[in-house]
């Protein structure tokens, strides 16, 4: 499954980034935008499946935070939040110029003892 490989990749990346501290990771926070095409539940379920295979990861908390969609309005040169799929600025100008919402990334890593 696609999501399993994403979660595997996350932990492979963390292992490479923190070779000495990896064992002490207590929490990993990821950000998934509402336009990333990956819902948090899929990451969460994939992680639950992964810890069955790799019980060593079971003490780590994986938190997925959803990021709202933010677009840029050319008319007022401002960013606005796309609420309920309305890609229209408060000034009335429609915009599909996305500045946030497409990302899927590691946003925070916490370790035991610091």
């Amino acid at each position: 499954m696609h999501e399993i490989s994403i979660v595997r990749n996350v932990f492979d990346t963390l292992q490479e980034t923190y070779p000495d501290k990896f064992e002490r990771i207590s929490k990993v926070q990821m950000e998934a935008g509402l336009l990333s095409n990956i819902q948090p539940i899929l990451i969460q379920n994939a992680f639950e499946a992964l810890i069955v295979e790799e019980p060593g990861l079971a003490d780590i908390e994986l938190e997925v935070v959803q990021l709202p969609i933010i677009a840029h309005c050319e008319a007022c040169e401002k960013d606005f939040e796309v609420v309920r799929h309305k890609f229209v600025c408060t000034c009335g100008t429609p915009s599909r110029k996305i500045v946030q919402g497409e990302e899927l990334q590691i946003s925070k890593v916490e370790f035991i003892g610091n």
């Binding site: 819902q39 948090p40 539940i41 969460q44 379920n45 639950e48 810890i51 079971a58 003490d59 780590i60 908390e61 994986l62 938190e63 997925v64």
Partner: peptide, 8 residues
Amino acid sequence: HETAKSRM
């Protein structure tokens, strides 16, 4: 999406 998390 957190109701089935085993650790939190």
